[in-house]
């Protein structure tokens, strides 16, 4: 279960500008506060932020919206964040600010390409993420078989994905987040 938040209406609540660009740090702060309020009342663990109707996203706004949202959620009850309809230019700004904070998020591109990870990542994290998306729910044994890894290596990678809230974990099994 998930909730999708379209950023355009929230932007309209935040600034009087007629444009659809997410720029400036104050705009990012205001928008994040609205998103946090929505997430706070959302019964679903997964929230999708929809960038589909957003033009430009600058670094300052990306930092305030995406990075701070992940940082603020760190000690909260399990919450998952997925970015959807992310364009190439959105991706660049988000990737850059998340790397700075060593944070990671799932992004679904707007061009139909498969979902991927933005921000800090390792080759094992990427491989495990792609495999979980492809295989669906499973455990470390299944992942190890699929990737030709040892169980320990697969378990480490899955745990890292779970700690970064890129997969859901329960009783030793892992499943992908709802991306559609």
């Amino acid at each position: 279960m998930r909730e999708r938040i379209d950023l355009r209406p929230l932007l309209r609540e935040t600034v009087t500008s007629a444009y659809n660009h997410l720029v400036t740090r104050p705009t990012g702060i205001s928008l994040r506060q609205l998103i946090e309020a929505r997430i706070g009342t959302n019964p679903h663990p997964t929230t999708q932020l929809d960038f589909g109707s957003i033009g430009l996203l600058d670094y300052s706004c990306a930092d305030e919206i995406v990075a701070k949202l992940l940082l603020n959620a760190a000690d909260d009850r399990p919450r998952y964040l997925v970015l959807v309809n992310v364009s190439d230019t959105h991706r660049e700004a988000i990737d850059h600010v998340l790397e700075t904070h060593r944070l990671t998020v799932i992004a679904v591109p707007d061009d139909g390409a498969p979902p991927g990870i933005l921000g800090w990542r390792t080759p094992d994290l990427l491989a495990a993420f792609d495999a979980v998306q492809r295989l669906g729910a499973g455990d470390s044994g299944r992942l190890a078989d699929a990737l030709g890894w040892t169980i320990e290596r697969a378990a480490d990678a899955l745990q890292s994905l779970a700690l970064r809230r890129l997969v859901q974990a329960a009783s030793g099994t892992y499943c992908p987040l709802p991306l559609l």
Partner: peptide
């Protein structure tokens, strides 16, 4: 910040 929105919007437009 509103001025920045206008300037960026104008360039994009």
């Amino acid at each position: 910040a509103e001025d920045v929105h206008e300037v960026v919007g104008r360039v994009q437009e």
